[in-house]
């Protein structure tokens, strides 16, 4: 049992971890790399068999963060009871240091659309999201972190700015925030907003984790559309925003996510080391961290 040690490693020293993806698992098992922690997608480990047993072995040596992608906190119908039960079982089995989900929805009318779909931000959806977050936290018996989404569309009916909506959810439910720096950048670029203003709209005391990832820039009828595909190195602009995020939130555990065009494991480790240097600079009290 390493829960206590694991918790202090990841939360105390605020190191940069790596998203654990299947092409790298054999290498991780074989080499036991010096990575401070791993994050996994909950839905990939809700089966029986070798997949989850291997993760249990990795869990013996590394703190694990569980990142859900299918709870659908924005569903008007409430949470899928079976899925929440499976998440609870996984949390009990792996004793993760962090559990997180998204401000998004993916389930409606019994169909699961495998995407983090956008919400309209209104009083009605605020109540729905809060009810769902509270339900999840009650069943899991712990606080969860909720991640800001990357968006490609906005609903005309939205009446609350996204950072304000997230802040209100945090205040009402007691959940924490997972600040995805790349998502802030992607969303801001797609709607011609200032990402720094978004960042400054988030409360400082509740960010329990940050995410960093790469994106691609597509052409949409002549205008750039940033896609949060987690398929490239973290962009320079996102590193710069990350520096501002550290200055605002302090050094919190940070994850390198890479889900498409997955490169050699060493590439992820190098990205995490870069994030680590910025976190360490902040811990030493320097504010003008050097971004290469």
């Amino acid at each position: 049992m390493i829960t206590t040690a694991g918790r202090s490693t990841i939360l105390g020293a605020a190191r940069a971890g790596v998203g654990l993806r299947s092409p790298h698992i054999a290498e991780v098992m074989r080499t036991r790399p010096a990575v401070p922690w791993f994050e996994v997608h909950a839905e990939n480990y809700m089966s029986g068999g070798p997949t989850v047993r291997v993760l249990e072995q990795i869990r013996q040596d590394y703190p694990i963060s569980i990142h859900g992608v299918g709870l659908s906190l924005g569903s008007a119908d409430g949470l899928d009871a079976r899925h929440l039960t499976r998440l609870k079982r996984l949390v009990e089995r792996l004793e993760p240091v962090l559990v997180s989900e998204h401000l998004a929805w993916s389930i409606a009318n019994g169909a699961y659309l495998n995407h983090l779909l956008p919400l309209v931000y209104t009083e009605e959806t605020f109540e729905i999201v809060c009810r769902n977050v509270e339900h999840a936290q009650t069943v899991l018996g712990r606080r969860i972190l909720v991640e800001n989404p990357a968006s490609y569309l906005r609903f005309a009916g939205s009446s609350i700015p996204e950072p304000e909506f997230l802040t209100a959810v945090v205040r009402r439910t007691g959940c924490g925030l997972l600040c995805d720096v790349n998502n802030i950048y992607v969303t801001s670029q797609n709607f011609d907003h200032n990402p720094v203003i978004y960042l400054e709209g988030l409360p400082v005391d509740v960010v329990g984790e940050m995410h960093l990832a790469g994106h691609t820039i597509n052409d949409a009828d002549g205008q750039p559309m940033l896609i949060d595909d987690h398929g490239a190195p973290v962009s320079q602009a996102v590193w710069e925003l990350f520096t501002l995020a550290i200055a605002r939130f302090g050094p919190v555990p940070t994850l390198i996510e890479w889900d498409t065009n997955i490169p050699a494991f060493a590439v992820l480790v190098a990205e995490a080391s870069k994030a680590d240097r910025l976190l360490a600079t902040s811990r030493r009290g320097t504010t003008d961290a050097d971004v290469e």
């Binding site: 659309l113 995407h115 569309l153 906005r154 009916g157 709607f191 009828d221």
Partner: peptide, 18 residues
């Protein structure tokens, strides 16, 4: 599409991304 802002594109083009 009627509930989606175009923000410089056809709303359908944004839905199509998803």
């Amino acid at each position: 599409a009627g509930a989606v802002l175009g923000d410089g594109l056809e709303p359908e083009a944004r839905i199509a991304l998803y």
